[in-house]
């Protein structure tokens, strides 16, 4: 038995050693990070980090030009790089900024959207929106090497990088202002085909009606981004994405715009202290600029007219801060 245990121990050590070499190469490289490396090498000077507001969300929309595409054509003097993903948010942007700051290819500025919905419990705490694997991939150094090599075997042993479990997520409290209004699971009828006015109201409450605190982890990430930008001479240009506030007002008369303005003001004040530019577009567009019928509740998804207008605003914002 002694021989067996010794041989198994030896096998275990050998597997770990081989895995250190092999695991690093078999770790699935995310195509978006590959794309970032490629763009940095190509010498871009401005990077647009986007979210779902960048793209078209209606299948029948004829003009499917993205916001980034429109913006690129409005700022011919800039070499614009683009990296977007539907559910990206401040945490993953922070890792991207860290990654860029350590890159040998320097860029001048980064445009980052602040999607107010991303601070909501449904987005902030959703397990699949934590992007833990991408965060590992974006890290550098020995720690990252180790994590990449043992990412799969550790997951195999049940050590998961989703820091929030599905149960924890569904248990997250929902607030209207500072008033607690149930948990995420109470509002989780996202894909229901039959929905009432109450359902829509519930969704708006879940996504936008919270009172943002400066202690929010995504606020801290946002401020860290600003700090890293200053330290590395990268100009960070934030903009708060527009929301269909007119439609939302129908459900929370007077309250909705007030709450959005409060939350936006907090963000603007904090960034002002950090001497970082921010463009507030939260209530800049009217209802005709949005397309959210497929999701049944008003939100920030833009149609081509909305993307055109935001592109215009951003181009002016860029020129203003050049």
């Amino acid at each position: 038995m002694k021989a067996l245990i010794l041989k198994l121990a030896l096998l275990f050590i050998l597997v770990i050693l081989v895995q250190l070499v092999v695991g690093h190469h078999t770790f699935e490289i995310d195509s978006r990070i590959d794309s970032l490396d490629k763009q940095l090498k190509e010498g871009i000077d401005t990077l647009y980090l986007g979210d779902c507001t960048n793209t078209s969300h209606r299948k029948w929309e004829r003009d499917r030009r993205t916001l980034a595409y429109i913006l690129e054509r409005k700022i011919p003097g800039y070499k614009l790089g683009v990296l977007t993903f539907n559910s990206y948010h401040m945490d993953i942007y922070l890792e991207f900024i860290r990654y860029i700051a350590k890159s040998k290819h320097k860029i001048k500025r980064v445009i980052i959207p602040i999607n107010l919905r991303s601070f909501s419990p449904s987005w902030d705490r959703m397990p699949q929106y934590q992007f833990e694997k991408e965060k590992i991939l974006l890290k550098r150094g020995i720690y990252a090497l180790f994590l990449r090599a043992f990412y799969r075997p550790l997951r195999l042993l049940g050590i998961d990088w989703y820091t929030i479990s599905r149960e924890e997520y569904l248990d997250t409290p929902v607030f209207n202002g500072t008033l607690r209004c149930g948990k995420v699971c109470d509002y989780n009828r996202i894909y229901s085909k039959k929905y009432s006015k109450e359902d829509i109201k519930g969704k708006i409450l879940l996504f936008y009606m919270f009172s943002l605190s400066q202690e929010h982890r995504k606020i801290r990430s946002m401020l860290s981004i600003a700090g890293i930008g200053h330290q590395n001479n990268i100009q960070i240009l934030f903009y708060i994405t527009p929301i269909d506030y007119q439609s939302c007002e129908e459900y929370f008369q007077g309250e909705f715009t007030k709450r959005i303005n409060e939350n936006s003001s907090l963000i603007k004040n904090l960034l002002k202290k950090e001497k970082t530019a921010v463009l507030d577009l939260s209530t800049a567009l009217d209802s005709s600029c949005f397309t959210w019928k497929d999701t049944f509740y008003p939100n920030e998804q833009l149609n081509i007219s909305g993307r055109e207008k935001v592109g215009e605003y951003l181009s002016l914002f860029l020129k203003e801060h050049n």
């Binding site: 096998l11 895995q19 075997p153």
Partner: peptide, 9 residues
């Protein structure tokens, strides 16, 4: 070792 590493990766 190869078999185990292939299974893992």
């Amino acid at each position: 070792v190869l078999i185990i590493v292939v299974i893992i990766n």
